[in-house]
Design a protein around this nucleic acid. Sequence first.
DNA 1: CCGCAGGACGTTAGCGTTAACAATAGGCAT
DNA 2: ATGCCTATTGTTAACGCTAACGTCCTGCGG
Lengths: 350, 350
Amino acid sequence: MRRTRRRRGNAVTIHEVARRAGVSPMTVSRVTNGEDNVREATRDLVLKAIRELNYSPNPAARSLAGAQSTRIAMIYSNPSVAYLSELLVGALDKASKTAVQLVLEKWDDLKPVAERAAARKLAQSVAGVILPPPLCESDVIASELAAANVPTIAIATGRFRANVSCVRIDDFRAASEMTAHLIALGHTRIGFIKGHPNQTASAQRFAGFETTLEAAGITPNPAYVQQGYFTYRSGLEAAEQLLDRKRPPTAIFASNDDMAAAVISVAHRRGLDVPRDLSVVGFDDTITATTVWPELTTIRQPIAAMADAALNLLLRKIRHKKTGEPAEPVDHLFAHELVKRASDAPPREP
Amino acid sequence: MRRTRRRRGNAVTIHEVARRAGVSPMTVSRVTNGEDNVREATRDLVLKAIRELNYSPNPAARSLAGAQSTRIAMIYSNPSVAYLSELLVGALDKASKTAVQLVLEKWDDLKPVAERAAARKLAQSVAGVILPPPLCESDVIASELAAANVPTIAIATGRFRANVSCVRIDDFRAASEMTAHLIALGHTRIGFIKGHPNQTASAQRFAGFETTLEAAGITPNPAYVQQGYFTYRSGLEAAEQLLDRKRPPTAIFASNDDMAAAVISVAHRRGLDVPRDLSVVGFDDTITATTVWPELTTIRQPIAAMADAALNLLLRKIRHKKTGEPAEPVDHLFAHELVKRASDAPPREP
DNA sequence: CCGCAGGACGTTAGCGTTAACAATAGGCAT
DNA sequence: ATGCCTATTGTTAACGCTAACGTCCTGCGG
């Protein structure tokens, strides 16, 4: 007599699909993995069976058989919590669906030497790495991982580099659209608070701002531009500076939501009404944008979707790596969106 | 001749551990799963080998072989991002170490019927559930999961219930300490902003406040107590109310950091200096506490450690369930800490 | 001294998938 | 027709782990 079987629940397996399609499991596997050495007719047969049985491959079995360790590291450092949180949610969701094991590493302010060592060590133990900002900018990490042949994806980096794939939005265009929006409202004296200088996205956003200003025939005024560091604190200081001007700006475009929130706080402290006396807009659409009052007009990045895509890309790269195909870096641009809320209005004085 | 082996990189397997310990793989498996039918001496041998080889079980193989998914769900709903983020970091860290697969679910404002259905469905697919606030208060979810015999841990619920284990801090004592701190500074007119009424922790915190006030000989003034909902927005309104009083409080104790941040914002808008004109203290020590200016004096909850402990407890319960032992609910109290920062000072007028 | 119970540990056989190789069919040049 | 090559499909044996069952050994009562 047969042993008690231990098949779990009721999940459809590759064998059932194979039987129904009248082929071997291996052929089914080839179809699900998109290999091209299957005849068109056979492929259709298999696909039909898959649809009929509503089959989906068991990720655990896949990663076990594939001998590809599916550990993927995400390295973060001094993150914006709101950003990290949304990123984690997206990544975790995908990870649980594909049976990859996400491991989190926190590398705070490492010196390049330490960073290099850490990257080298990490490369031993994981199959891929996700680099959210600000670490996505580190050439040290990128080059070390590339040297170790560990697929890497940068999220929301401002530029596309040769050795690392990335998933991002078009910071330049987004900033440009926001600037155009402010101009369309009637603003001409627009302040700008830059992001952290170590991130390319900061430069992109500023470039988008300046270019659009010029295109509209407004000469950029250096006195209306302040350096910030993506922190609330730096936003406070920058706002103080901007509002101390004899003719202060009628609108301030901060390079992220945290700094925009700081601007609102300063404005309130000075008795200015937002948006009647001062329009304030942010960038990223993190939770901050909707917690402050008034709610921020900002640029929405689909962070969770980007995390999802990043994992997808990474998995594909890991697979390609196994087959030896030299996967060339990808630059996956996501669509952003200008979210209009309550922190902007036409200027009081024309 | 042997076929080419396809062993992945360098991961240590259960066989290597077994060989080193001089036992069978099965014994190692029993040890890693905490089964009790292994002699003490043997167990130590195995544990030593595990440590020496730095072995950690392959989750894919585990879930494939076990037919028991080590999937643990964390259900969140309208969370404080800062809180969620820290929670996720802690849970994920532990999860990757113990090879459990964390799945995230977002249940936003479900009606009880829908919530019950969702819980019933979830119970089919996971081995355990973690309930952070505010869902940790839901008796519907708790009872449904208990009925399905799915181990559940509530995080940071205010009270201990018979059917759900929980991991939390002593909200009453923490609030009491903070109140005593304000009184020690010389404050007698202390405002309080309550948390969301659907969370027991809110009541606990308020009780701690009121009790300590009375113990110090100060009669609680209902006019100094406002209902809040843990949101920044609700904090704004509550603060406006409190500061509109003819004799406004000289200190405001908000039931969480977000509302405390809102109080600071309102104070600034009214030209009050924090802390010279108004002391403001929060609760939770989320990231908000250190982003606002001045930084908040608050109560620190070790959120990440609590997530870690929650997973631990859950794993133990899942194991016990397999062996049939009836695990009785646990109430794991964590130590909190009053973190003194820059938002409190003695009152200006005595 | 035997038999038997029960605990500790080992063996076997999968879990569902894919890597590596084998086999087969068809095509084409010799 | 024969041999050889390629495109397609099948077979076998892992991947690392654990459920289920088997075996051995110890201890104890009769």
